[in-house]
Design a protein around this nucleic acid. Structure first.
Lengths: 189, 189
DNA sequence: ACAGCGGGTGAGTGATCAATCACACATATC
DNA sequence: GATATGTGTGATTGATCACTCACCCGCTGT
């Protein structure tokens, strides 16, 4: 009974992109099969290929969508922030980002994209996304370039913390790296 | 005439690890075949499998070796630095790191490792390497934890600049990200 | 009744890959 | 000379994957 209405291909496409995002986030570009994505979307891989002619197209669509979500979240955080100082607005955006990547999916996909940036279209999509993130952070916060650069650098450090599982390591070096960086812990409520 | 003496397996192993490092750096873990590595090393893949029972073992060996090189370089830079202030020693180490990754190989391998950190042994090797880098940076520079963390964060940003090819983009957002970050340009001398 | 069409699939195909095996060639030891 | 051991390879295997093709189903218009 969950299928309430007819599903046109226009309706299928976002569902497939969602499935692609979640699936590629786990296995990466080379490590994920189109059949995996199809299974997650609940359709046949043949139909996925009809809507996305190549695996590359599918990955790029998932990556583009992830960046849209990220930019939207950053924008909302900046608009909602009552902070007056630019650096405080950036902090609000950082907190929102930390909340957004709590489920790791968006973060992992970015790291996989970085790893596969040698594939021409993936690299281009990555740069597109980074451009939007950078300009959004810069314009919405009105912080100076150094502060925005630092914002991005610590975002990257956050990626490292999560992908390498540093947050779960009980040692001085790990605490040094992860200090002040919010990270998931799909928590017990 | 280049082969001056018999090549025992002990002599072959470092050569294979070198080839693995260079080859995995290009294609990543999932995107590189053991046959690729074997070809780069100039031997058969069957023999590679005899010395490294699995592809995972080969990748981990390459990653471990990369971190050894990095830590050695950082250590040498710190020891050679005449700087007295801890932050200046860190800067010297950062400069040495920038020089080391000029050929992108070590950097790319780290990014690929981050992307494949979900593979248990790869994640463990990555954490091993990060521990050594962190403690080396901290102890050799005697800088405080915040400065070391910033050193690492900007190292990660540097990885992003190189993998995403941001250094070659002629736009404000790209210059903002890459400002002050030395990057390759396999230069014309 | 039937043609046309968008949505959807099962069953392939050719290529590729991690890993294995049987075997060759040398050197050494007894 | 026989036996063993280390170095090295070509051929193969069983699985997997990106991608294709022939085909089915249900709908709409005539």
């Amino acid at each position: 009974m969950p299928t309430k209405s007819l599903s046109t291909s226009e309706r299928r496409i976002p569902a497939i992109v969602d499935a692609a995002r979640d699936t590629f986030a786990v296995g990466g570009y080379a490590g994920t099969t189109v059949a995996d994505v199809a299974k997650a979307a609940g359709i046949s891989s043949a139909y996925v290929f009809k809507l996305f002619p190549t695996k590359q197209d599918l990955f790029v669509a998932a990556l583009d969508r992830s960046f849209v979500e990220i930019v939207e979240t950053l924008t909302r955080a900046a608009d909602a922030s009552s902070a007056t100082k630019p650096d405080d607005v950036l902090d609000a955006m950082a907190a929102a980002y930390a909340g957004l990547i709590a489920d790791r999916t968006l973060l992992l996909l970015q790291v996989h994209a970085q790893s596969s940036a040698g594939v021409t279209e993936v690299g281009a999509a990555l740069r597109r996304g980074l451009e939007k993130v950078t300009t959004t952070a810069s314009q919405k916060s009105k912080a100076d370039d150094d502060a925005v650069q630092r914002f991005l650098a610590f975002g990257q450090l956050c990626h490292l913390v999560v992908t390498a599982g540093i947050g779960d390591v009980d040692a001085d070096w790990a605490r040094l790296i992860a200090r002040g960086i919010r990270h998931p812990d799909t928590a017990t409520p």
